[in-house]
Design a protein around this nucleic acid. Structure first.
Lengths: 214, 214
DNA sequence: TCCATTGGATAGTGACACTCTCCAACTATT
DNA sequence: AATAGTTGGAGAGTGTCACTATCCAATGGA
């Protein structure tokens, strides 16, 4: 398959494909001459993965590259791979251990994780992410309380259990690992969309689409 | 309070505050002279809201402006406000009704919403968002199935019920509405962080931190 | 033969969120 | 009163990001 064909089939401009190759997101085609290279089905599939992560997952090109790197690295185990993906996905919530407010929020997070008995790495960026949200909430005069948090923990547990449980163990690594990561990212969006819909429904039922101001 | 004081207390550079005023995110201070204006406590609070939405919620300045506009508009009812927030938050998932693949995904979404009996506007962008995720999933060879979706629906319902139920009805509009929106955005991040942590925990238990490749 | 296509490299673009610089008009300090 | 510092207001500049556009020499198919 020539690059123009790859472009047609993927719907991406040739320029963009070249750009992805330059950035290392896509392996270059097998050169058949100085100005000719052959692309395979895998290239097309890789492009689909890239677009899914970019358009739906809203990841930066650099983030996609990190994830793809981990997927391609045969030495990375599934647990590590999921970790890499999760860490890469966390939008950099800068830790600020110097600010007492921040430290306090972070300690709350650590206490909750310990209380739940979750096996989460002490330096997981998700901890900082959560601390950041806690801090913002407190600053807005709405500090988190256990009762507020419980439904979220419950929901997160339901989902995670299902997600991790659903990963097939046997079979060849390549595709399995690739879809594991992709579905992880994609189902996050599914969850968010469903939450918003459920909110709209609950809000309509409670505040009435026509009972209230319009 | 002078602008320099507002800057100190909020931790934001004076330039940035001026920029927010220019962009209409922050009302200008009460002018006391040609080159002097007085800022109140509300300005500080507004800045905290802006920063929470920007840093934690990851919203663009334009998105923050839309939300703040709805919050400030006394004529907007709570249900509409939540809708505005949700619509604004949805990262533009462009609808492409010309592509049959896309239409099919969108029809799946509509069928699911109908099946659940949810009161969701027919032109809610969340429908497109979900359709986009469905489409990407199918393209990756992992089409959604009802059994995969159920836990997410369940989780979304638990959360939305709790969130909408927890909004206080009486009391003055201003602050209530403001925190309703802010907590909505912030708790989304809380949910995501908890999901990732629960995943890490489930993954550690299933694939073993030390049982597998390291 | 000859012209569209390709690989490869470099430069340019538009959006975004600030950040910098100016200037005249003040205020506070000495 | 002189002087140093701050402010409002506006425009220009900056750095990052994800592409796009342009070039050029070398093919490859008609």
């Amino acid at each position: 398959m020539k690059i123009s064909e790859l472009s047609d089939r993927s719907g991406l401009p040739v320029q963009t494909i070249k750009y992805y190759i330059r950035e290392g997101l896509l392996p270059k085609g097998a050169a058949t001459a100085a100005t000719r290279a052959e692309y395979a089905e895998e290239h097309l599939e890789r492009l689909r993965l890239i677009r899914a992560l970019r358009e739906v997952g809203d990841l930066s090109v650099a983030a996609v590259k990190r994830i793809i790197g981990a997927v391609d690295d045969e030495a990375v185990g599934l647990h590590e791979l999921l970790g890499t993906a999760a860490y890469t996905l966390s939008p950099a919530a800068e830790a600020r251990p110097d600010e007492p407010d921040w430290r306090s929020a972070r300690e709350d997070v650590d206490a909750i994780v310990a209380e739940l008995g979750w096996q989460v790495s002490p330096d997981a960026p998700t901890r900082d992410l959560l601390a950041q949200a806690f801090l913002a909430l407190r600053r807005l005069g709405r500090p988190i309380v256990w009762t507020d948090l419980r439904p979220y923990i419950e929901a997160a547990t339901i989902i995670a259990e299902h997600e991790i449980g659903g990963i097939p163990v046997e079979g060849e690594r390549g595709r399995a690992v690739q879809t594991a990561v992709a579905t992880n990212v994609l189902y996050e969006k599914v969850l968010l969309a469903l939450r918003r819909m459920a909110q709209e429904d609950a809000s309509a039922r409670r505040f009435g689409a026509d009972a209230e101001s319009r």
